[in-house]
């Protein structure tokens, strides 16, 4: 009887603990969408400013450095030259950079590309579809996608050049 009581109490406490644990865990340690580290990055198609179409799933076998940005966002502006320089070094090693602008006029985006001499493809997400799919609410946001199309890391906030270099190294196929 004493043993039974202990078992019953343990079971009830475990049940309660797992309910509380699940709530806290899902609220603080996971994204509230299917976008999370380890999940397959949602596929998308976007056309860059040179007219070339990019489909994420076509980049299987390569690491993809997916960056969401806007011209008004100062941290985005700071990290762009870093990404550009590191891209030069890593594009031979199988790392692709895709920069997705959050639906600004082509004119503004083109001026920005010219100003910073960006060499990687930049596409405009005109209808917010890709932004919705990736649940972007803060800029800049960077997704590291490995050669199997899985999200390896999600970075929100500005990066140093060293971080950019390390991140690109980490998704090298």
């Amino acid at each position: 009887m004493k043993k039974q009581r202990l078992v019953v109490r343990t079971v009830i406490l475990l049940l309660l603990l797992s309910a509380v644990g699940y709530t806290i865990y899902s609220n603080f340690f996971t994204e509230k969408t299917s976008i999370k580290v380890g999940a397959t990055a949602p596929d998308f198609v976007l056309t860059d400013l040179n007219g070339k179409s990019h489909r994420l799933s076509d980049y299987r076998g390569k690491g993809v450095f997916l960056n969401f940005w806007g011209t008004w966002c100062k941290p985005c502006e700071r990290e762009m030259p870093y990404i550009n320089r590191q891209y030069e070094a890593y594009k031979q090693q199988g790392v692709e950079v895709l920069a997705v602008n959050v639906g600004e006029p082509k004119l503004s985006v083109q001026k920005f590309i010219d100003q910073f001499g960006l060499t990687f493809p930049v596409a405009i997400d005109r209808e917010d579809q890709v932004m919705n799919a990736y649940d972007i609410d803060q800029l800049p946001a960077t997704f590291l996608i490995d050669k199997n199309g899985k999200i390896k890391k999600i970075i929100t906030g500005t990066m140093t050049e060293e971080m950019v270099q390390q991140y690109m190294e980490s998704i090298k196929p």
């Binding site: 198609v45 890709v130 799919a133």
Partner: peptide, 12 residues
């Protein structure tokens, strides 16, 4: 409603 496969970014 979007018909066909859903690929974000594609003309729906």
């Amino acid at each position: 409603k979007r018909v066909g496969p859903i690929v974000p970014g594609e003309e729906p």
